[in-house]
């Protein structure tokens, strides 16, 4: 992350869907936002929406899954799993997608992204 990175507001928390994904467009970049909500515990993740294997902007439509302790999303096209925390593809060592820091400030969802 470079110094110029800033927190940008993306949407309301109510725009997120429990245990599923939505997509935001920020500076022409598509970012997939996921909300994990298990027994009142909420975790947020943001990764690039681009599926580098299927070559389409679809990752936000994937299923949230867990592999051991790792929380992942499975691509809806060819089912490769990506770690939401690191962006690493679990099914192809050489492939990873970009991960963005994400937080909630006063009911607003914000991510950190280059200007």
């Amino acid at each position: 992350m470079t110094k110029t990175a800033n927190w940008m507001t993306v949407c309301q928390t109510s725009d997120l869907v429990d245990n599923s994904g939505v997509c935001a467009l920020i500076n022409e970049q598509q970012v997939a936002l996921f909300k994990l909500s298990v027994r009142e515990q909420v975790q947020l993740f943001a990764i690039s929406n681009w599926d580098p294997i299927g070559k389409a902007n679809v990752l936000y439509r994937g299923l949230l899954t867990s592999v051991g302790e790792t929380i992942t999303v499975a691509s809806p096209l060819y089912k490769q799993r990506y770690s939401l925390a690191t962006g690493q593809c679990l099914d192809a060592d050489e492939i990873a997608v970009r991960v963005y820091p994400i937080r909630i400030e006063q009911q607003l969802v914000q991510i950190q992204i280059d200007k």
Binding site: S20, L64, P76
Partner: peptide, 19 residues
Amino acid sequence: HVSLQDTNDTYLGNMQKDG
């Protein structure tokens, strides 16, 4: 139920190669 469905069921359509 919505978070359980495979993408085709979630969007009630058949996803093609370009999304």
